Computed example of a mutant assay.
Amino acid sequence: MRRSEFLRAVDDEFGARANALTNDLVLGGIGMTAHDALDVGVPPREIWLALCDAADVPPERQYGVGRIEPRKG
């Protein structure tokens, strides 16, 4: 997952709450906000999964989101 895919996934999943969640919510297992984690180089996929866990996003909405086109193969 690229940073752009992460940001798209957050916007798609959380809408108007996206900014508050990425800037204010300290993610368990990472120990910082999503915004700070991106800035220090934590892989976006790891941040996405921690955010999904913290926000109780169901598993079927955690994978493949944020991509413009589905993976081939």
Results as ranks from 00 to 15, higher is better:
R2C: 14
R67F: 11
E69C: 06
R8M: 10
A54W: 04
T33V: 08
P44V: 04
R67K: 12
V65H: 03
I68Q: 10
L7S: 11
G73E: 01
E13M: 15
V40G: 07
R17G: 08
Q62P: 03
A54N: 09
P59R: 05
R67D: 09
P59F: 03
A50R: 06
G15K: 14
A50D: 10
F14W: 15
A54S: 06
G41Y: 05
I30R: 10
A55C: 13
A34S: 12
G64Y: 04
K72I: 08
V10P: 00
A9S: 10
H35K: 10
A37K: 12
A37L: 03
E69T: 11
R45K: 11
G31Y: 10
T33E: 03
V40T: 14
C52F: 08
G31F: 01
A54G: 01
E5A: 15
D24C: 05
R17N: 13
R17P: 00
E13F: 09
R45F: 07
E69P: 03
S4E: 15
P43E: 14
I47C: 00
V57R: 00
I68L: 12
T33S: 12
M1L: 13
L27K: 02
A18C: 06
A34H: 08
Y63I: 13
P58Q: 03
A37G: 05
D56K: 02
D11Y: 03
E69R: 14
L38E: 09
T22I: 13
A37W: 04
V65F: 11
R8C: 00
A9R: 14
I30H: 11
A9P: 08
L51A: 02
V10C: 14
L49K: 02
G64V: 03
F6C: 05
H35T: 08
V26N: 04
C52A: 05
V10A: 15
L7Q: 15
H35G: 01
V26F: 01
L27D: 04
D53K: 06
G28S: 15
A50F: 00
D39P: 01
D53L: 03
D12T: 09
A9Y: 03
P43M: 13
L49D: 08
W48R: 06
R3Y: 02
R71K: 11
A18T: 07
K72V: 09
T33G: 05
I30P: 01
P43I: 12
A18F: 04
D11T: 15
T33H: 00
D53P: 00
A34D: 01
M1S: 15
R8S: 10
L27V: 06
R8V: 10
L38W: 06
A50Q: 04
D24L: 10
A37T: 08
D36Y: 08
L38C: 08
P44F: 00
F14N: 00
R17D: 15
